[in-house]
């Protein structure tokens, strides 16, 4: 038994089997307790009284209005942030100017501010007690407790997503291809559409995906600016809170299950992008 068989040989850069098994089991146990169990709980609670009850609760006018509002907000906020992201990435990576690092810091700023503080900022800027807000209300365009405020709060919270994904990818790709296209006589727009856009499309899609997931689920900032008016300014997450606080557990979890399903879809697409287009995304993931 004293001879060393090849199966017992272990490279110096590998952990012992006992250590490996212990670490894997511990880590997986924590993931089950914190990640997988809550996910299962959402669907379990939603279907507690059967499919019929869950689906009926989703057909309530209040739930439908919430779904419509959330889709509307995302449909406005996400494209605007995508346009900003592309413009900012172009500006930052195609030109040399002073204060670039500072500009990037400002773009990232919303990530270090609490969503509730973001909501507070919107109220302090456009609330009915400020002069901008008061004059807008007078003109018939209230911002706070209305759609524009919800869109703005969502935009602030999700502001850096697209730019953050695009900037490293565009730095990696450099300017040579665009310069070649321009030398050959292509117009600026043509260069952007036929040279730049195909190069950054996967990173752009990735950024939009993350931005959209956060936009649809944003709670803290929207809770402050929406006023939580039923059927009017209550987004899906806000409606979930209201239903939950009224002990309408099945209805709350049914709506939550819809959002959880969307989260699944997001993760699936994200993983697909990462596997299929790893090269195009590599620059941004190095951060």
């Amino acid at each position: 038994m004293s001879e060393i068989t090849p199966t017992t040989f272990r490279p110096a850069s590998e952990d012992s089997p006992a250590f490996r098994i212990a670490l894997t089991v511990t880590v997986l146990a924590v993931l089950v307790l914190l990640l997988f169990a809550p996910l299962i709980a959402v669907f379990y609670e939603a279907l507690r009284k059967g499919w019929v009850e869950a689906v009926t609760s989703l057909a309530e006018p209040e739930a439908l209005a919430a779904i419509r509002l959330t889709l509307t907000v995302a449909a406005i906020a996400v494209p605007l942030n995508a346009i900003f992201g592309v413009a900012a990435a172009w500006f930052i990576t195609k030109y040399d100017f002073r204060g670039k690092a500072f500009l990037i810091t400002l773009i990232d700023l919303p990530f270090s501010v609490s969503p509730v503080a973001v909501g507070l900022c919107v109220v302090l800027t456009f609330g009915a007690n400020t002069w901008i807000g008061a004059s807008l209300v007078e003109a018939g365009y209230p911002i706070v407790f209305a759609l524009p405020g919800i869109v703005l709060a969502t935009m602030i919270v999700t502001f850096p997503f697209v730019a953050r994904e695009l900037i490293p990818v565009m730095i990696e790709q450099g300017r040579a291809e665009e310069e070649a296209a321009l030398t050959l006589g292509a117009s600026g727009w043509r260069t952007f559409l036929t040279v730049t856009l195909p190069n950054i499309r996967w990173a752009l899609l990735y950024g939009v995906l993350l931005c959209n997931a956060r936009a649809m689920g944003e709670f803290g900032a929207v809770a402050v600016v929406s006023g939580k008016i039923r059927g009017q300014t209550a987004t899906m997450p806000i409606t979930i809170e209201m239903l939950y606080n009224e002990y309408m557990s099945v209805a709350a979890f049914a709506l939550a299950a819809v959002l959880a399903f969307l989260a699944f879809l997001t993760l699936g697409l994200k993983t697909f992008l990462e596997i299929r287009h790893a090269d195009a995304l590599a620059a941004s993931r190095r951060h």
Partner: peptide
């Protein structure tokens, strides 16, 4: 699968996570 699931807290809305953790 585990690798993909790590990002769940980024994708799952916080209110959903909140009521799910409370239920558990």
């Amino acid at each position: 699968l585990i690798d993909a699931a790590v990002d769940l807290p980024f994708a799952l809305p916080t209110a959903v996570a909140g009521i799910a953790l409370t239920a558990l």
